[in-house]
Structure formats: C-alpha cells, structure tokens
Design a binder for these strands. Structure first.
Lengths: 216, 216, 216, 216
DNA sequence: CATGAATGAGACTTCATTCAT
DNA sequence: CATGAATGAAGTCTCATTCAT
C-alpha cells in the first residue's frame, strides 16, 4: 500500500472493463448490436477506439462481456434468495416475480434479453451461454418455487415445468413492449397493474383448495 | 409442354414481389435484418441483385414489405373471428389463444415479432406501424373477448387491459424461446403442455364463481 | 401512295433518331452526359429503353449523334454566309458575330460547347471531331472575314489568327455564364449590351485609320 | 536518418487534406468529376480509399474543397493587387490580364472553371459558391480597373459592366481550348500572340482620345 | 498504457446493356 | 419493330481492426 505510487490510476485501470461494457450496453440497447459502432462505444466510455482493443479482442467478445456483466449477478442473487426463503410459497413467488420485474424494467440490463433474441442467430455460442447460465437457471428457480409450494400443500398439483413460461412470459412481454414501443409514442404499459393482475391470477389459480373452474 | 424452352423470365411480374419477400423473411429470420445481405436475399429468391431494386427501392422498404406481407392477413382474420363467434366466451378465448399460438410457432411469420424487436431502434417508423396495425389491434381483440365474457357473466370482473399481456406473454415467450434457443441445442419447449397449462390456469382463475383463493 | 398501307408509321420511323437526340440533348444540357440516365432519355423521347438500342449502339454513340445533329447545320450555314456576302467587311463581321450569339444563347444547341468541354477528357475522339468539324472551321471562317477586311483596306493589318479568340471568347463566356450561373440565381448577363460593347470595341480598334492609341 | 525506418504514416494530419485535394484536382482535370473514381484519387494521393473519408465526408465535399483550395488565394491576391496599384490604368489592366492568363493557363487550377461548368447542373450550391466568391468578385475587380481608368481620364467612357466579359472571354476561351483540344492533337493556341493582340486591341479602343472609328 | 490515423473487405446501390417475348 | 424485365460490373461509402507513435 505504501509503495503504490499512483493508487488512483490503478483503480482506474481495473474499472475500465466495466466502464466500457456499461457504455456498450447503453449503445446496444439503443441501436442493437450490429448498428452500434465501436467508435461510439469508445466515445461514450471516454476512451479512444484503440484502447477498446486492449481490453476486448473484438466486438463479439465485448458483446459477451456486456451480457455476462449485466446478468450474472442477478441470477446468482435470485437463486440464493429462493433457496434461503422460509415464508409462505406464494410470498416467495410474489417476491421472485416482483424482483424479476424490477430488474427487467427498472435497470438498463433489461434490454439484455432483447439483444440476445436479436443476435442469437449470429452468435450461437452466446445464445447457448445465455440459455445455460441465465434462462435455464432462471426457469429452474421458478420451477423450484412451484414445487416447494406443491410439496408444502400450498399450491395445487401443477405441471411446474409448463407453468414457468406462463409466469415469466408476461414479464418478458412487458419488458419488450416498453423498450420497443414506448420510444415510438405508444401509450405506456401499466406495469403495476399488470403485476397485480398477474399475481392475483396466480393466487386464484394456484390455491390448493381452488375448485376446478368448469361448469356444473 | 414437355420441356420448357425458355426458362429465363417466364414468371410474371406480379409474382415477384412475394417471392422476394418470402426469401427475405427466411434470411431475416435466420440472421436478423442487419446481417442479411441483399446478395443472399436475391440468390435465395433466384434472381440477381439488381432485380431486387426493380421491386423495392432499398433494403429498408423491403423490410417493411416483408412485415406487411406476413402480418396483415393474420390480424384481419383474428378480428373477424372474434367478432363473429357465438359460443361461450371461454371457448372463444381458447380458440384465439390456440390460433395465435399456431401462427406464432407454426409458420415462418412467427419470427416477425423478433425482427421488430431487434430493429425497432433503427426503424422507429416500422415499430410504430407494427404497434398500430398489429400489436395494438391484437391486444384490443383479446381485451374485447375478456369484456364479452365479463358482460355475459362467464368471467369474473377483471382488469381486461392488464390481463391481456398475461394472456399473450406466455405465447410470445414460447415463440422467442423456440426461435432463439432451440437452434442451439436447448431442449425443446413443450408447447402443447404450455398451452394446456396456460388455458387451465385461465379457466380456473377467470371462472365467474371462483372463490378468492387467498390466505385466511 | 395508294399502296403504302401506313404512311404515318413510316414517317415516324424516320423521325425517331432525331426525336431521340433532341430528348438526349435536353437531358445532357440539364445534367451533363455522365449524370443523364438512358432511362430518362427514353422516357423523354416517349419510347422504351430497349428501343434506344435499335437506333444507337451505346451511350457514347448517342452522344456523338447529339453533337452532330445539333452542330453540323449551323457551321455549314455560317461558311456559306461568309463566302457569299458582298457588303462591307465590318457589316459581315457584325452579322457573323450576332448570328453566332443567337445560336449560342437562343437555341438549345448552345449547350453543346459546354458538353464538349466537360466530356472531352473521356471522349477524345469526340473532342477531335468537334475540333475539326466545328471549332476549327468556325475559327477559320472568322479569320477569313478578318483577312477579307484587311485585304479590302477596311481593317488595319492585324494578326487574324490571334484575333479570332478575341472575337469569339466573349460570346463563349456569355453562353457559359448563362447556362451555368443564371439557373442558380445570379443576376442575368446583359447580352445585348455585351454585343453592342463588343462590336463597338471591334469597330474602333479595327478601323483602318485608327491611330495607335498609347503614349510614346 | 539515412534510411527511414517507418514510412507508414509519418506525414502529419495537417498536410493530408491538401495532398488529397491536389490529387483530386489532377484527376478531375483529366476525366471530369463524375468519371473520377475515389479509388483513383486515393491511389494518386498515396493513401487508401478509407482514408479519404477521414478528411472529407463524401465526394461532393471533396469537390468543393478542391475548388476552394485552388481558387480562394488567387482571387484574394487579384483584389489586393488591383486595390494597391498606383501606376497608369492601362498598365494595371495589362497586369491583371496577364496575371489572370498566367493563372488560367500556367497552373493546374486552370481547369477549375471547366469543372464548374461541367458540374454546375448537378451541384447548384457549388455553382453559386463559385459565382459569388470567384466569378462575381473577379468581374467586379476588372470593372473597378476600368472605372478607375475612366475617372482618371485615361480611358474613354465605356460601359464597364458590359466590357468585362469582352476582356475576360478571350482568356477563358484560351484556357478551355488548351485543356480541351490540345490533348487531342489540335495545333496549340498561341497564347502570347493572343495576349498581345488582345491588349493591343484594348489599348487602341480604350484610349481616351480615340476618335469614333469609322469614316463617313 | 493509450492514441488515433490508416486500412481494406464488404455492404448497398446504380445503370448501361442484353434479350426473350 | 418495340418492349421492359433482368443482369452484373462498378461505384460510393462504412466500419472493425491494426499498429506506429
């Protein structure tokens, strides 16, 4: 510590990659991957174009780093949360859903799914990475919550695997709608009402004692 | 008749535009708009690069034509169907959902939403068109079905506007999952189970006499 | 006459080449040779693009035909006029100058010199043709008028060869100015005043008894 | 020092634009603007195609820069010269004419007028620029010289405005002739004789005491 | 470490020319 | 004769990547 001659510089150096991926994430969110020029990424990160290449070997690797940076923390946290919760299963489900909604809509990382969708065809390896590390783990986490509720008698027996997309789909739609249509003048989607409605819907349907809704 | 003596340009001028948009749709679906080269579109359509420009003034207009061709018929049909149905509201809702699922997953036009999402930032005008002519109309149609059910006493009172994304979201997720992850080796998503689960879930929750499932 | 089944068609056929060169001349005048598309030439001539090639083997030959059509008559006439005139030499000179001015400014063929200048580098053969058939013959005609005046004692002895550009230069400048700058809002050049001044200038200077003006 | 170890991009950024405009001027002079390929401009400037675009946003702007570079200095100098001269008006006029002739014929910038003429239809903005900054200012300068001579009693009263094209026209013709016809084998135009004849002609005609030329 | 000038492959687009009808 | 759909070479311009400083 005493011998370090320039501590500010050192910290700067280590912070660089994340400054760059943050800048890249902004641009990718606005224009998509292909239409984002590295010139602009560099400018937004406050560095020169050449410096980019000191940290990332090419545009594709930068893309992967952007995704990793934005996503890994979130999914780790979600798994930890679900694993350590000790309350009622519906409270747990609601917490997971609301937290996921908050991530998707409230943070810049919300555009990541959109980027993945858009570029999966061109970067299969990235699509696989995202599937394995994010999508599948996220789905598994929600499925685990459902199974926990069933085992504890809080939820009726339900096909957990098939139910997961039903739970996550509306959140995904909200995220995509917001980033796609709201910039072009569409009326905003009311996320709070959507969440309330979605959770109410789930509560009614999953309740262990819910009668089969059909006709008499 | 036995052997066509002049294969060169026997095809009528009128057929060409759709041959081209069909070829373009395939390519855009595989690689996205930006990464699709007009050379390849032309090759897949069986024409030369220059011929493209006899029918579409530039790449962007071709994109718009692809979207219009693939989408307009579908949405018209859905509106007609919903307007003329005379049976029970849940049967109508199920029909709409299953038909939408069939479109999204079973036909090539299923990638259109993905394309729109990916390029909305670069083509705001197209995003607006899709929002106005497809997304909003589709949402309105589903909302109308819900209101019909409520009015007829078949569904409990529900916030129709907020419920629509809950109904459509899972279908969108299924579509995106299939086109994004299945090509990279992910296990296939079981659409039939998803639909059954989704519809069962809706039936239970929407039933007019369903008790509020919450805790005591 | 009786046996000719379609006399209008026949006349049409023979008129075609000139209809085409006329249309081409208009376009070349507006945009220059390189920027004029054969599509537009055909459209302005009221024919299809393919038909152009029935009359001219390629764009360059069309260009040559345009020049020939527009120019040959004029130069023939000028030579005849100068050769057959029997009045005073200054009247002859004035007549030649005014007639040349009329051609250059008053008719569409006035842009020909400009076209030649612009494209000489790309079509040396055409430049040579124009030089041989138009420029040199025109210059020779004016020089002959000057020599006639000198021989008849009407003009002082003057280097006829060197004097010709002095006579023609102002007319050329007027022509180029009008076609170049007047379309972009420049104040119009007063051609009548220019001609009067130019001819007055020539009259004073060429007069056989004019004293040498300068100081010793 | 003996052998330069790094020939790659030693040249300073500041020198580049002029190296490029110089190369472009050469090519434009040879082939005209439309027929000059940027590849060739780059090659002649000793750089790559892409480097062009670091300095000029497109071909048209390069063209404008070529014109500005070649022309602005000249016209400034001419105005200064005419404004500060203190000798006889005819000497001043002769100096202006000879200097203009030297520019037009002796330097590469002599092709600029030809380029402007050729492309005015396609680049009206450039035509206006040249008109405002070069043609009109040049004409005004010559007119001022004439008015100076008239005011000082050295020239007869003459319509200065109408006289200017009479003075400049022959120089323009000489310039265009040389660049247009001499490369295609025409006999060279004798510029020295032309200038002597032109100036002698002007001296005789403008002299204050010159009698009105013709005999009764 | 950092820079930014330079590169060149490759994209979109134009248009003179051809040729089956 | 006339058409106009089709072609493909060639042009302008972009941008990820390199490398001398």
């Amino acid at each position: 510590m005493a011998t370090d001659p320039s501590p500010r510089w050192r910290r700067r150096k280590e912070a660089r990659p994340q400054e760059i991926t943050a800048a890249a994430l902004e641009l990718f969110a606005e224009r998509g991957f292909a239409a984002s020029r590295l010139d602009d990424v560099a400018a937004r990160a406050g560095i020169s174009k050449g410096t980019l290449y000191l940290y990332f070997p090419n545009k594709e690797e930068l893309f992967k780093a952007v995704v990793r940076d934005a996503v890994v923390a979130t999914i780790d946290e979600a798994e930890r949360l679900a694993g350590s919760f000790s309350g009622g299963s519906f409270e747990l489900l609601e917490m997971v859903v609301r937290r996921l909604a908050g991530r998707i809509v409230g943070t810049r990382a919300g555009v990541i799914p959109k980027l993945i969708l858009a570029e999966a065809g061109n970067f299969p390896e990235l699509a696989r990475f995202y599937h394995d590390e994010v999508a599948r783990r996220g789905f598994a986490t929600v499925a685990a919550v459902l199974r926990r509720g069933i085992e504890r008698g809080e939820f009726r027996p339900v096909d957990a695997r098939a139910m997961v997309p039903v739970i996550i789909g509306p959140l995904l739609l909200a995220s995509l709608w917001k980033s796609t249509f709201e910039p072009v003048a569409a009326e905003p989607l009311d996320l709070a009402a959507l969440l309330d409605t979605h959770l109410d819907h789930l509560r009614r349907s999953l309740a262990a004692d819910a009668p089969k809704g059909g006709p008499p």
